[in-house]
């Protein structure tokens, strides 16, 4: 049933479909993006070539490029997108700040810094040590940003949090550049820890997928508590929710998911900002639906951005972090410019 909805002064026609159907539509979108991602590259494969590569692989050029290059990067984008989307949704929920996200708050850069700092001394790391370092770095950055962001009395004004986050991001990015330049690493590795790309993460994904699972389980467990906390901490307490415990679980999920995403794809900013805004439009304010929807919308956005990066810079390609920033920065401006930063 079509319905007119007055939304922030503009009139939008929304399709009133039930929420499971909308989630299914989102998942079909993800599937479409995956197919497109396997299809489009520096050369575009035909449908026959794709089927051939997927079901009866031989060592033809098309088979190898699809199985060895496009499939791994697609899976990496799916996993990193889900992690960042859910992390962004949780952060915006807990801070009630519509412009918070792990990239802008310096959590992703903190994770990248921890990895780079150890890797420049010890040489290349295995996925698990790398992931543990990323979790440690993300945790330290999160504690610093949330700690300093709350100095001004109440739970941190949106602007204070973002500015402290920007400073921590700049600081970590500066040190990462220094370390990378000093270790005279190849330009490829340099770009990876500065911008974020999904080209190298498949190996890490095969080892680290339990972390993604853990993060999403924590997020789902956190969803009901977050619903109660949205009503205010006093109401939440009367509903039997301990605010402190809920915040710790939420922060834990954010750290696990951000650390995982950074280990796979480097520090990607703005994705965690976009996803919650998209899913709130589709699902309203119920976090029991927002979390799974973010786990579908994040991959959709990241895979699409990755495809766009391959098309925009042919015959080379654009790191996905740059594409997401080109889309996300104007949206950030749009949200920041609205009359008042509405709490979510």
């Amino acid at each position: 049933m079509n319905q007119l909805v007055i939304h922030e002064g503009s009139i939008i026609i929304t399709l009133r479909l039930s929420r499971p159907i909308r989630l299914a539509a989102l998942l079909i979108g993800v599937l479409g993006a995956v197919v497109l991602s396997l299809w489009v590259g520096s050369t575009t494969s035909s449908a026959a070539e794709m089927l051939h590569a997927l079901f009866t692989p031989q060592d033809t050029v098309a088979d190898i490029s699809i199985r060895e290059i496009r499939w791994p990067r697609t899976v990496t984008a799916l996993a990193a997108g889900a992690a960042l989307g859910v992390a962004g949704t949780l952060i915006q929920g807990h801070t009630r700040n519509p412009i918070a996200e792990p990239g802008l708050l310096g959590i992703n850069q903190g994770a990248a810094l921890a990895i780079v700092a150890v890797a420049t001394v010890s040489g290349p790391l295995q996925p698990w040590p790398q992931a543990l370092l990323a979790l440690f770095g993300a945790l330290v950055a999160a504690v610093i940003v949330f700690g300093l962001g709350q100095v001004d009395g109440s739970r941190g004004s949106p602007v204070t949090l973002i500015l402290v986050g920007a400073a921590v991001t700049a600081l970590c990015a500066g040190v990462v550049s220094t370390l990378v330049l000093l270790s005279e690493a190849a330009l490829e590795t340099l770009r990876f820890w500065q911008v974020g790309s999904v080209v190298h993460g498949y190996h890490a994904f095969l080892a680290l997928w339990p972390l993604l699972l853990l993060g999403i389980v924590l997020a789902v467990a956190n969803a009901r508590q977050l619903n109660a906390l949205t009503l205010g901490e006093a109401t939440a307490r009367s509903l039997g929710i301990t605010a402190g415990r809920a915040r710790v679980i939420g922060l834990g999920a954010v750290v696990v998911l951000s650390g995982f995403a950074v280990t796979l794809a480097g520090p990607i900013a703005f994705l965690g900002l976009l996803v919650p805004h998209v899913v709130r439009r589709l699902y309203g304010a119920d976090y029991r639906w927002l979390v799974p929807a973010a786990a579908a919308a994040g991959p959709l956005l990241l895979v699409s951005s990755d495809i766009l990066g391959r098309v925009l810079a042919r015959p080379g390609e654009l790191p996905v972090g740059v594409v997401v920033a080109i889309i996300g920065a104007p949206y950030f401006v749009y949200v920041a410019r609205r009359r008042k930063l509405v709490s979510v």
């Binding site: 100095v151 001004d152 204070t160 500015l163 402290v164 920007a166 400073a167 700049a170 330049l181 005279e184």
Partner: peptide, 29 residues
């Protein structure tokens, strides 16, 4: 290795930004 000056200004300037932000919000309170 000769590093770009921008790296140093970022690392020195970022804590200064934090100081400014916190100072400002304390004044406002």
């Amino acid at each position: 290795v000769v590093l770009p000056a921008g790296v140093a200004t970022a690392v020195i300037g970022a804590p200064y930004l934090i100081y400014l932000v916190l100072n400002r919000s304390r004044v406002r309170v």
